[in-house]
Simulated assay, not measured.
Amino acid sequence: MKSIVWPVTGLMMIAGAAQAQSLTVVNFGGANGDAQRAAFVQPFEKASGTKVSVVEYDGSQAKVKAMVEAKHISWDVVDVESGDLGRGCSEGLYEKLDFSKIGKRADYIPGSIDECGVGAFVWSTALAYNADALKTAPTGWKDFWDVKKIPGKRGLRKMARGNLEFALMADGVAPKDVYSVLATPAGVDRAFRKLTELKPYIQWWEAGAQAPQFLVAGDVVMTSAFNGRINAARKDGKNLQVAWNGSIYDLDYWAIVKGTPNLAAAYKYIAYATSPGATADFAKRIGYGPVNNGGIAKLDAKTLALLPNSPQNIKNAVRQDGEFWTDHGDELEQRFAAWASK
């Protein structure tokens, strides 16, 4: 570009301005992506004049790493799961945030502010059931394990994370004590023993869409499920309900790719997407909780009842311990895979 001399310098200024007013935002697509487009992307484009391109990905950090190492950045803002945020930050994949460019720290819920990220929304894995099929509604994981009280198959995601915590709660461990128990070899053995009790009744799911499908089809009487998937099924007229006792919640985070040429626009996008109005709008569309206290305050009781971090639903919930799973995830997932294959 430096070797080109334009006859009209104004053209260069216009081109430069146009290039500056663009942003690429990366998320997981699906119903979540649709809700983000309606609540965040389109209103931000209208308010800022910035063109936002949305890219879907599977959460793998490999492409982000390749971009940063090559110093050829084509993504700007990325929706990152909690387990990947810390690793990505330590590896230099994401910018360390200047929070003064986003908002007031006091306005955000606990756990939503990190060195390289700010919470995008709160989601959970919870116990879900078809209220048209069950005469007795389950109240928690003890009921999930009680095949005499509520006969039938149960759905669980085919992985250790989440299931070990559910098993301990079914075995009487209080939500607040789950990770202190799971941090011991005896606690891990206890969780696997409890899972073994239920194993003949388990139907595994791997994709998030399968859990509500199993319920609607009658393949299972209860299942663990992403709460947003259950909310989407309810909007389609299915009488699926959630027992929030013992749900495991976590946050997705907004992160800015290290070295982006669109840093200022990235900050503006995150500030908008975490503002009270935008987070409340998003929550109404998919049932994932706002990270902004002002967003929570904007919601009515009916909407709050569907959110993992409403004052009522979070009382007996467990915040997923990302550090625990970073430290022990590989060994526990290997043990789980061996156990599940027997």
Rank of each mutant, 00 (worst) to 15 (best):
Q36R: 12
Y253I: 01
A17Y: 05
S74G: 03
G237N: 09
L134E: 00
K153N: 14
T139C: 00
V291T: 13
V257E: 09
S74T: 15
T196E: 15
D34Q: 14
M12D: 11
L85T: 12
S112D: 04
K71M: 05
L198S: 07
A15D: 11
G237K: 07
L263I: 10
V64P: 04
E323K: 15
F144E: 01
A340G: 05
N130I: 02
L251A: 01
A20W: 03
V68L: 04
E323G: 07
G59T: 05
A233D: 02
T260L: 06
E331L: 02
G259T: 12
G33M: 08
V41H: 06
L263H: 10
G49W: 08
G208F: 10
S310F: 09
P43N: 03
T9V: 12
R319F: 11
S112V: 06
Y179P: 10
I109Q: 11
I296F: 03
N130E: 00
A120H: 14
N163R: 04
W145Y: 14
F192S: 13
L306F: 08
G152Q: 04
K46N: 09
C89G: 09
N293L: 11
E197D: 13
G16D: 06
A217Y: 02
T274M: 00
K158G: 12
A255Q: 05
K235R: 13
I14C: 06
F40C: 00
A283H: 06
V221F: 01
G103L: 00
L299C: 07
G29N: 08
A38D: 11
Y253W: 01
L240M: 05
G218N: 11
F324W: 04
N130Y: 01
G140R: 06
V78Q: 08
Y108D: 07
G322H: 10
V221C: 04
Q213K: 09
S53E: 13
T260P: 02
T274H: 01
S60M: 01
P43R: 11
W205L: 03
A186H: 03
D171K: 12
T136L: 09
P175M: 07
T125N: 08
R319A: 14
G103R: 01
W339V: 15
A47M: 10
A20M: 04
N239P: 02
D146T: 02
E45N: 07
P290Y: 08
Q320L: 07
L307A: 01
Q210I: 09
K142S: 12
Q210E: 14
V122E: 10
R105Y: 02
G277Y: 00
Q42M: 08
G117H: 13
M13Q: 14
